[in-house]
Write a protein that binds this DNA or RNA. Structure first.
Lengths: 154, 154
DNA sequence: CAGATTTAGTCAGGGCACTGAGTATTTCCG
DNA sequence: CGGAAATACTCAGTGCCCTGACTAAATCTG
């Protein structure tokens, strides 16, 4: 059997896209704070006091990964983690002063980086780009939680 | 500063897209062989006898990562790795019988998976989807190798 | 109220992805 | 020919990402 053409394989393209982004992030945004870490900071700026699981849900990380990311952010002093007095299973998360400052700084740099990253596309193409990726990703995620937004069966 | 809207951040979308793909791959293609591993098999079907570095270049993996992936494929008996008699630095890579069989099997399943993954898009949208991602990824990779396809400076 | 179930988080294990440092081999050039 | 530079690969270290098995706490139900 002949080899497949990977340039028409969405998985391969997605991986290449993510790697390209990773490298640009490293040079233009931060070598310390990663993109997923920034996503967590960004979520907690908007909604302080969320628990781990919910933050993971917001940024799209599973329980194990979000635990690692949060532990790194705590170690760096960007995040505080305290037991929820009303539910002993949960930890409540909140940015420190330093965490807020870091988020502010990275938000500016990230905007600059996105300009460079998306430079090959026109404004209309960018809209389409976001729309297509979002639709594919949403649909695939939907396959994992069957019946989530459906009426009860039977 | 207000939180940024991550749904317009290409890096965040790329990560979500890749994760969605990862999960679908696991359920529809293989729990043993990963997508990057398949990409390596696919490359060697077409060009047997390539060395590690070149395979890495073809599929978009750096020297360290490709070494790990290849070592796993060897361990599974899908790949043979022998010193190049003409250049003692290189290893020549070649699929085993089993490797060819595995590639054949996964090619069929991957095609099925891609259909499901891309189901939310029309045929024209898929073309645009590939084109936009490829252009962004290519441009970002180009930023790393400045002057690669340029005339010699000054 | 007690036991079953659900939920939040941890831990071990496997794989992907990068950098920086180091080894061995080849090549280039004086 | 012999030393410098380039090349192929390895290794250690960090971080992301998932699953499956586990613990502890809350909730649901008889």
């Amino acid at each position: 059997m002949a080899a497949a053409d990977l340039t028409t394989h969405p998985g391969h393209l997605a991986r290449r896209l993510q790697q390209a982004h990773y490298l640009l992030w490293n040079t233009m945004v931060s070598e310390e704070i990663t993109s997923p870490q920034y996503a967590v900071l960004n979520t907690l700026v908007d909604e302080p006091g969320l628990d781990q699981r919910t933050v993971g849900e917001r940024v799209g990380l599973d329980r194990s990964t979000i635990a690692e990311v949060i532990s790194r952010l705590c170690r760096r002093g960007l995040l505080d983690k305290v037991r929820d007095p009303e539910d002993g299973r949960r930890f409540l998360l909140r940015l420190t002063e330093e965490g807020v400052r870091t988020h502010r700084k990275l938000t500016v740099r990230t905007a600059r980086m996105n300009q460079v990253f998306l430079a090959p596309l026109t404004a209309e193409e960018r809209t389409v780009f976001f729309d297509l990726i979002r639709r594919v990703a949403d649909a695939a995620e939907g396959l994992r939680n069957p019946g989530e937004s459906l009426v009860a069966p039977g």
